[in-house]
Write a protein that binds this DNA or RNA. Structure first.
Length: 424
RNA sequence: GGAGGGGUUGCCGAGUGGUUUAAGGCACCGGUCUUGAAAACCGGCGACGGGCAACCGUCCGUGAGUUCGAAUCUCACCCCCUCCGCCA
């Protein structure tokens, strides 16, 4: 959520900043609603002050019959207050509805652009491998090795699910442990294990609702939603809290499965693990002092990169342009890993700063000094990494001519010493 | 799912219609005193919204309602605790 005061005082700047985003956003109607809200507020508060005073006077009078006319008068005032409050509530609801669907301002350092074609490459790491044979796709490798079974997953549930078996299942688990161990022991993150389903308030606080309900899986009886990313439960850990400046930055690492409807992506990435309704992810989340958020985004991105470096997977870092960043983000770096079978880089991590956008929605604040006014923290998060896509990258980059897969050395201790996956 | 108990301004906790502008204590901050500290005493001590400000308004789990007036009465819902049932 954006700051109402800021919009009020910088209306043109706000509109032009939002215009650099891809979607069509209009703040039209905002000023009018805002003014109406304030004039209603002034009126109703004056009446309430009067009512409070008169009620106090009535309280002091022993013989109520002498103040009959005052009581009658207050009855009318109360009715008037109620009418005004109802009107105010409507205006505030409309204002909130408008505000909740407006995306964040792009950060000044976010490149301006319309689509992903305008994203800017920041750096690359490693070089795409040269194969002296034609590299196979991970789905072919997975089926031949008997470690990925898409057909049976479709029988069990439906399209866009996968059944991992044997060394495949273990490799996924090894990656989760490896990533969590790295971030908690080397990068200073606190491990958390969260609920995988959340309520609507949590989903609204991070920005998935109200606009993106069609992307989410919903439960019927309690009105809960399956998380599309650990960002939701982890950011909500501190919802409606006032943190101490001395405890910032707070850094959490969380493994969770993620559930996404992938509505509107029919026909895209239909084969393989790239786009699934359920996938595993290790997520990094930070709550920081606003002064530190730019530096913290660089650090967090570096922590995600470290995973790829240790796995010896070539990748590049892209700065997303204003037209391509997510709803709540003001700045985003995507890490894209090299996939030889597709001869292309594919997103494996997205590291974003949200400024105070989520903190304002979620009511996450801190005090600069012990006695100073609470201010909103800045929130950041990034995948460290998407586990399924990491498994894909390992399978495709580490494949051998005979169809076996070498296990990266840093993972072998997590695989019981296994060095290579062969057909079982 | 059933029965019971409970949710009060950082914490504890009083308060069952009108000096509650929410007692009291703890914690915290400032002052007096002291060589310094502690103790004692005095004062301060929340969030949000509106306003240049004085100040005003809102907030006692949430939402409706009764009333001139609600922390207090009514209804619904949420959460926590205990016991029973079921269960990984």
């Amino acid at each position: 959520m954006l700051d109402m005061k800021f919009i009020r005082e910088n209306f043109e700047h706000a509109e032009s900043s939002l215009a650099t985003r891809n979607s069509e956003i209009s703040l039209a109607g905002f000023i009018e609603l805002d003014e109406k809200r304030r004039s209603l507020l002034v009126e109703t508060e004056a009446l309430k002050a009067m009512k409070n005073n008169v009620s106090e006077e009535i309280a002091k009078v022993k013989d109520k019959s002498t103040v009959k006319d005052r009581i009658a008068e207050m009855k009318e005032v109360s009715a008037r207050i109620k009418a005004l409050d109802d009107e105010l509530k409507l205006v505030e609801e409309e204002l909130a509805k408008l505000l909740m669907t407006v995306p964040n301002f792009p950060h000044p350092t976010t490149p301006i652009g319309k689509s992903e074609d305008d994203n800017v490459q920041i750096r690359t790491w490693g070089n795409p491998l040269e194969f002296d044979f034609t590299p196979k796709s991970h789905w072919d490798l997975g089926e031949e090795l008997g470690i990925l079974d898409f057909e049976r997953a479709a029988k069990i549930t439906g399209a866009r699910f996968c059944l991992y078996k044997g060394a495949g299942a273990r490799l996924e688990r090894a990656l989760i442990s490896f990533m969590l161990d790295l971030h908690t022991t080397e990068h200073g993150y606190i491990e958390v294990l969260t609920p995988f389903m959340v309520n609507r308030t949590s989903m609204t606080a991070t920005g998935q609702l109200p606009k993106f309900e069609e992307d989410l899986f919903r439960l019927m009886d309690p009105d809960y939603l399956l998380i599309p990313t650990a960002e939701v439960p982890v950011t909500n850990i501190h919802r409606d809290e006032i943190l101490k400046n001395s405890e910032l930055p707070i850094s959490y690492a969380a493994y969770t499965p993620c559930f996404r409807r992938e509505a509107g992506s029919y026909g895209k990435d239909t084969r393989g693990l790239i786009r699934q309704h359920q996938f595993n992810k290790v997520e990094l989340v930070k709550f920081v002092n606003p002064a530190e958020s730019e530096a913290e985004l660089e650090k967090l991105t570096g922590h995600a990169e470290k995973v790829l470096q240790l796995l010896q997977l070539p990748y590049r870092v892209m700065a997303l342009c204003s037209g391509d960043i997510g709803f709540s983000a003001c700045k985003t770096y995507d890490l894209e890993v090299w996939l030889p079978a597709q001869s292309t880089y594919r997103e494996i991590s997205s590291c974003s700063s949200f400024g105070d956008f989520q903190a304002r929605r979620a009511g996450i604040r801190f005090r600069e000094e012990e006695k100073s006014k609470p201010e909103f923290v800045h929130t950041l998060n990034g995948s460290g990494l998407a586990v399924g896509r990491t498994l894909v990258a390992i399978m495709e980059n580490y494949q051998q001519a005979d169809g076996s897969i070498t296990i990266p050395s840093v993972l072998r201790s997590y695989m019981g010493g296994m060095e290579r996956i062969t057909r079982c």
